[in-house]
Amino acid sequence: MARRSWAAAAAVLVGAGTIAVASRSPDAPMPSPPPAAANDATDVGQLRREVALLRGAVARGPAVAHAPAAVDAPPPPDEAPVAPEALIADQTMLVEDRLAAGDPDPSWSSDATRLIHDRFAQAGLTGARLDAAACRGTLCKIQLRFESAEALAAVAGDAADSVPWTASGFVRSDPDDPLRLVVYASREGTRLPHPDQL
């Protein structure tokens, strides 16, 4: 969006410069310019320099216009440098804490656990077995173990399919077992708690 605004502004300015320059045909005889025309020529030259500067600014992006002194500096990161591992660890801790916090609805938990087992029996993931499934509160934890790293890599992106309802969730490799994936899923109608939303 920002880049498009810059391009539009530059296009207007470049267009203005082009019109000003095109008003002087190179084939027309050039009478002695009156003083006012000399000022026009100076304006055209100034316009050309400014258009060139603007073209450069557009090519470099808006950050340069905000901080001209930073032209030679490396581009700033486009987002806060938060390590994914930290977010994954925070997310894992949060859902594990919630799972350990008690079970206000044991009937849902047992039904949900059974549904997970049924889903896996009907449509399991190739090369995987269901190691464990447990639900508490509004969350379920599903542990899948794969026969090989290749099998895991082939279907890791589909691991969320082991949840038999419309859910939000989180899938991660088990740091203690490279052949295991852990799927955390919310109860239908609820959302997975996120660490940055606490």
């Binding site: 969320a160 419309t166 989180f170 899938v171």
Partner: peptide, 22 residues
């Protein structure tokens, strides 16, 4: 049925992604 996923590129630490179904 749709699923939106946001994840990190797989690396030595394995895979990780968040998903939401609707």
């Amino acid at each position: 049925k749709c699923r939106l996923k946001t994840g990190k590129i797989d690396d030595a630490s394995g895979t990780a992604y968040w998903f939401e179904d609707a």
